[in-house]
Design a protein around this nucleic acid. Sequence first.
DNA 1: TTTGAGTTGTTATACCATAACAAAATTATA
DNA 2: TATAATTTTGTTATGGTATAACAACTCAAA
Lengths: 178, 178
Amino acid sequence: MTKQHSHQHGHDADHVHDHNHNHCIDTALATAETLCLEQGQRLTKVRRRALELIWESHRPLGAYQLLAKLAEEGFNSAPPTVYRALDFLLAAGLIHKVESMNAYLGCAHADRAHKGYFLICDECHNVMEFDYQDIHAALIAKAAKQGFELRAETIELTGLCADCKAQATDAHAVGTSA
Amino acid sequence: MTKQHSHQHGHDADHVHDHNHNHCIDTALATAETLCLEQGQRLTKVRRRALELIWESHRPLGAYQLLAKLAEEGFNSAPPTVYRALDFLLAAGLIHKVESMNAYLGCAHADRAHKGYFLICDECHNVMEFDYQDIHAALIAKAAKQGFELRAETIELTGLCADCKAQATDAHAVGTSA
DNA sequence: TTTGAGTTGTTATACCATAACAAAATTATA
DNA sequence: TATAATTTTGTTATGGTATAACAACTCAAA
Ligand SMILES: [Zn+2]
Ligand SMILES: [Zn+2]
Ligand SMILES: [Zn+2]
Ligand SMILES: [Zn+2]
């Protein structure tokens, strides 16, 4: 299990970070540049900035949220701009799409091929990416047994994260109304 | 593994059924009525007809496709009509939503609580629902280890189904161009 | 028969995503 | 360097998915 961002555990958007998130962003961007260079891909201004903005968000970011941020900075504000950037970043494995949220998330492990498996909190909407080789292998085997050739996996688990569960318990114990 | 419809293996929409699909529909509707009765839920005309139409489709059905069919039959043609019916059917466990397709599928096992796991063919777009208790247990355990309380699972696997794979192989062997 | 809960009708709007073609920038080639 | 080919971006338009808000109706219980 890998927490996507180690700071992604707050319960409200204004939660104070307990580490320098700039480090995460810098690392992700450096990886992105290396990968694009290796693969002869061009990490253009808008693609690079889109990736940064996705990383700067503490939650999966919707396409139009991202588009608005890009527009604020002088980039073209029409939808194809953002979808092209997202398509590029997805194809490069630099971000994942969370299907059940229609939102996009930076991947901290873009340098190694993998499927994105996610734990999504219903309460705080934080998302953790996790890695589970056992499940991946089991799914491939299961599919193969049906003659099905697996190409992609959408594994999105929702529920209550540890922090939100603790908070709910606390509130109950104290007898908080509502 | 349970094929959602045993006839869902054709490669084109006009594939001739090899069984009487009306039986599937009748069974599903009977189950739906029993469940609603037991739970004090009202399977109204529009809800019932929506469920039938979803079952009559050989593929997961989009909300607006369903809406059009309902409208043809004299039901109100505004979006809330269909989304209300879908919400009801989802909550009752009578259908599943395939997140990666934004489409809805009848569930043949509504009478026993379960998660909908799907195998989706990229080529023919048929969907098979499957049940995998091992994976379900593993996911719960994995989440619990993180203090995460699992509530819902979106497991959607895409790739090439056995039929489409065979067809592709045949075409190749025969030396078909393209 | 009144009351209240649940359901449906209706209008409007927000959000998500792509098609199609023109213009510009970049890279490769002559 | 000039030219051509390729990729990327700009622009306009459209299509697809989903919900908000409030009024009207239905049905069953009190
Ligand atoms: Zn990842
Ligand atoms: Zn949470
Ligand atoms: Zn099911
Ligand atoms: Zn197929």
